[in-house]
Design a protein around this nucleic acid. Structure first.
Length: 397
DNA sequence: GCGCATCGAGGAGTAAACGG
DNA sequence: CCGTTTACTCCTCGATGCGC
């Protein structure tokens, strides 16, 4: 292990730019060139849902705002300032940088992946949160990002540190992708059982007959249990994060094996759903008042409600059930109970349950591993960055 | 002194929580 | 359950800074 760690500023190790001030009325909802706006930069990854905007006009003179794989981007305003930072992946491209988003590129003395892990640390987040200015809206400037104090190891050691952290990230990523595949398998099987191969002679039942919609669980005011609010849900939340212990005030209650479905218009359009598996056994968790809670009755496997909630036919039905005034449209639990579904005979239900029993535990296990690895990464990162833990590295010279 | 880049501030629109 | 309130940021304006 040779070479000194250099005390310097972030600006000594990276080039920092910010994006072009596009006119928003010229954005399109469809296209290929994505506009990287503050809204798209979330914690650790880019988000391209309903928020995606595209630039379909001339890009003459805008070349310098184009993004490349590995670029680190940081949201420069908003109340969640400091949290919103991400590394551009190949799937985010092509993309172009908008105003109020900073782009960081490693200089010759630094490693791009190392820079990313540095930016993703809690320490950087706290730094941004401690220095932002602005009264109504917090802002940071490029120079404030540049003046972040860092300890820069020699390049080979940066590579080594980045490779340790990136391998953890890669493993987490792999598990996420595995779970996506498993979910897709379950969805295919669901379509096959309940729709494509459904026998005409099967009875059509109502969802309300085979599942409890908003089952009654009891929590007293102040009872402390796991709380999951809606902002922690996205389109793929088998493994929701960001839940915490909190005293019950008001909201929907649920148990492991329940499916949550967001009732508010835009969330339904995003398909915000979640399969609850993060609670302790028999614990009653709670969350937004805007959830509809679905729990399959015996003999149906609990996971069926989650697949159903993501099924296009069901979503269309749920959206058509929405009503409400003053622009506050919500799906109605009472109507969702009426959703018609072909009921397979009992032996086939047992068969379905067996197949799901082969998939769901894998999903749960992967989710558990993801949580463990994330915890490990979060403990390791500050120790590696401060030099408290050193990594063996080959001399690059 | 000009033109472009950057910065600070705040209004407006909207997502989501609150709470009667 | 559902209207209201809160909070979030997006977007834009005008001021200021900077290089030539």
């Amino acid at each position: 292990m040779t070479g000194e760690w250099k005390e310097c500023k972030l600006g000594d190790a990276v080039e920092i730019d910010s994006g072009f001030a596009f006119k928003s009325e010229l954005y399109s909802d469809k296209g290929s060139l994505k506009v990287v706006r503050g809204k798209n930069v979330t914690v650790g990854q880019m988000r391209w849902g309903n928020d995606a905007k595209y630039w379909n006009h001339s890009t003459d003179d805008l070349e310098r705002y184009f993004l490349n794989e590995g670029d680190v981007v940081i949201g420069m305003d908003g109340s969640k300032i400091g949290e919103n930072r991400a590394q551009i992946k190949n799937s985010d491209l092509p993309a172009i940088l908008a105003q109020r988003v900073a782009r960081l590129k490693a200089k010759e003395n630094s490693d791009q992946k190392f820079i990313w892990h540095l930016i993703f640390s809690d320490e950087f987040e706290n730094y941004i949160k401690s220095i932002h200015t602005g009264t109504s809206i917090p802002h940071i400037s490029q120079s404030q990002i540049a003046s972040y104090d860092i300890l820069l190891p020699p390049l080979p050691e940066q590579h080594a540190i980045a490779s340790v952290l990136s391998s953890l990230d890669d493993k987490i990523d792999l598990l996420h992708r595995q779970n996506k595949t498993l979910e897709a398998m379950a969805e295919t099987l669901f379509r096959q059982w309940f729709v494509e191969e459904a026998d005409e002679e099967w009875k059509t039942g109502k969802l309300g007959d085979i599942a409890d919609i908003n089952p009654t669980y009891k929590l007293k005011k102040g009872d402390v249990s796991s709380y999951l609010d809606m902002k922690n849900l996205n389109t793929s939340t088998f493994n929701p994060e960001g839940w915490c212990k909190r005293g019950f005030s008001s909201g929907m209650k649920f148990k492991n094996g329940d499916t949550l479905l967001a009732r508010i218009t835009p969330c339904l359009e995003n398909g915000k759903t979640c399969y609850v598996d993060f609670l302790d056994e028999d614990e009653i968790g709670w969350g937004s008042t805007e959830y509809i809670v679905i729990r399959m009755k015996n003999p149906f496997h609990p996971f069926i409600s989650y697949i159903l909630a993501k099924d296009k036919d069901f979503r269309d039905f749920a959206i058509s059930s929405m009503s409400g005034s003053s622009g506050r449209q919500r799906a109605q639990a009472g109507l969702i109970k009426e959703y018609g579904i072909k009921l397979p005979p009992f032996p086939l239900i047992e068969e379905i349950n067996i197949q799901l029993a082969g998939i769901v535990p894998k999903l749960e296990n992967n989710a558990k591993q993801i949580r463990t690895l994330e915890k490990l990464r979060d403990t390791l990162l500050p120790k590696l960055m401060s030099g408290e833990v050193r990594v063996e590295c080959e001399d690059m010279g």
